[in-house]
Design a protein around this nucleic acid. Structure first.
Lengths: 336, 336
DNA sequence: ATTTATTACGAAAACGTTTACGTAAATAAA
DNA sequence: TTTATTTACGTAAACGTTTTCGTAATAAAT
């Protein structure tokens, strides 16, 4: 037989209400009773039914994390940050991968109307250009916190890195290394991070009296072989770039593959800098200069912000942006 | 006001029972009624309360995935495989990271007594040497499927790769390349994969009349700098190995770092082969020869096996081992 | 014409909690 | 002493489903 609150109540000659309150450390219950209840619960290996609890209380002790990919070291590390605080708070974490598909993102969020989760951490897809489906959670009073890839139109907590400055720094570094024709690999026209990084790129060009050339902005897709072609086409041109910035991790690899195929030497013929958290950046051939993002801390900060909202009576997170800076790590893909 | 089954029932002048059955496509309900109910449900954006549903039915439509790390490309890819089938089946996926801690693994499984999940996919920690805490799920009729890192003593479905053969192949390859003193980096004495890979290693040595030297088996820990020291100590010896096998992904990187520090040339002075799924293996300096595991397919197969069990009246998965072979991919860390 | 099946639905209990409200006893304040 | 407050517990409803069982009405079989 399953041991429920009733089992305990009967055995101790108490009401289920008292037992429930005792287990939840209610002020209404004497210390003595609490001890007795908890002792018996432990002895009989009582474990509360989560579904019953959630149904009645309206809280599921579960949060959702929605990200585009997991095979990206940024998100891997961010997950670790999130998980570390969730486990500490006794919360459980549902993971969802959108694979950069807006439709999937919508379907996932739609499901949260079911009361499955108490809060949501999200990094939107490259296709997401408005937040209607995310705003729908407001009606259920489910707090949402963005990290990395945010939606400007939502008034909530957002954890980002200094994308604008990073774009600037990356570009300036290449210019300092002698580059005059710098390509920027992006993945989306509506993604906050892409736009910010590009703005920084443009500003750096302007500050150095270098012309901005729209042809040097390459929008990549979610298809590796397609991206390979795009980059290859870029690099076979007569006036090919002498510097490339990959604004998203997976694109760095593609650049290396193209350069290998075309026998282009990095960094002598072309310099490369990638937004990446790969520990193996050091081990690449040549070691990759990176903009390294504080992924773990961003994940952690996002989770902290979410739990802060979950503890408020007014569910809604403070509308504020937390910026955790990235760092430029110079290696041999830009300098000899 | 929230729209529940009662709302629909009242509006259509039906009982809640009928509405529920209609929504679940029960044979007891006429097609006409089903249409009307579903139409109104759609119109009013009705979404069933998962907690109520789970409480009554005893099924949560959620599975758990327990893995040691996520910052490991094997697990990243496996997750993709799992997620792909879960999403298709309309199930949700809870993720838990053990960080190789048995205590954490136990705590996580303990929590599953709450009815939170219908089934579990697990890859155990390096510390796990018995399955008592996992067997405890049997009393709750929660099916468990192992992938990659299995527990022999559990009678259930297990998805693995051909670890023994992979260990053999890796060793034989190094021998073919001229190595006579081969070190094996392991992470645990009780982990199935470690032992199998080591047995394959031993067999290959024996088949080639090479002596087995226990000093060449290095047990690494979950601490990068500690591992670095271990490997460094190994490589500063006079009779240092001329070949190393890293049986787990993260150790390959450590080997490269040590070799860089000691100015040891790969592959001329020491040849390296790693169990790894990093796409960047190609891009390392030098490109890393790997045993590449079918991570995505293993994850997928594990999920499929679990769902098969979830659909059975008798919850328990078939006690069988599915082996999906790995492949040796030869690159320049073993050949010039 | 009577019995038996089948179809389509409803009443009500059940799942295991949490919580609003009530209350008796003990204590404190007036 | 009377009244107010606090302490510690119980009663019972509620959360939103699913499911068992019952039952009319219609159709089929005898």
């Amino acid at each position: 037989m399953r041991v429920t609150i009733k089992t305990l109540a009967k055995a101790l000659n108490l009401s289920t209400a008292t037992v429930s309150k005792a287990l939840n450390d209610s002020y209404e219950i004497s210390n003595d009773t609490k001890q007795r209840v908890k002792a018996l619960a432990r002895e009989l290996h009582y474990v509360p039914d989560l579904n019953a609890s959630s149904l009645r209380s309206g809280r599921s002790k579960t949060i959702a994390v929605i990200i585009p990919e997991v095979a990206d070291s940024f998100f891997s590390q961010a997950i670790n940050g999130i998980e570390s605080v969730a486990q500490e708070k006794g919360y459980h974490v549902l993971f969802y991968l959108t694979h950069e598909s807006l439709a999937k993102e919508q379907a996932i969020l739609q499901d949260f109307q079911s009361g499955r989760v108490d809060g949501v951490l999200i990094s939107v897809t490259a296709e997401t250009h408005n937040a209607a489906h995310i705003k729908a959670l407001e009606s259920k009073k489910i707090p949402v916190v963005f990290f990395d890839r945010i939606c400007d139109e939502m008034e909530t907590a957002k954890i980002i890195t200094d994308d604008y400055e990073s774009g600037y720094k990356a570009t300036q570094h290449l210019i300092d290394c002698g580059c005059r024709q710098i390509a920027l690999l992006s993945i989306s026209e509506n993604l906050s991070i892409s736009n910010q990084r590009m703005e920084g790129y443009k500003k750096a060009l302007a500050d150095n009296q270098l012309p901005f050339n729209a042809a040097n902005i390459i929008y990549c897709a979610n298809d590796e072989s397609y991206n390979f072609c795009l980059i290859k086409n870029l690099m076979v041109q007569a006036n090919r770039p002498d510097g490339i910035i990959a604004t998203v991790e997976k694109l760095s690899g593609s650049i290396y593959f193209v350069c290998r195929e075309l026998h282009l030497q990095i960094p002598t013929q072309v310099k490369v800098i990638g937004f990446s958290n790969l520990q193996s950046a050091w081990l690449l051939n040549p070691p990759l200069t990176t903009i390294t993002q504080p992924a773990f801390n961003m994940g952690k900060a996002a989770a902290v912000a979410l739990f802060k909202a979950l503890n408020k009576k007014n569910y809604s997170p403070k509308n504020e942006i937390l910026v955790i800076p990235s760092s430029l790590e110079i290696r041999n893909s830009t300098v000899i």
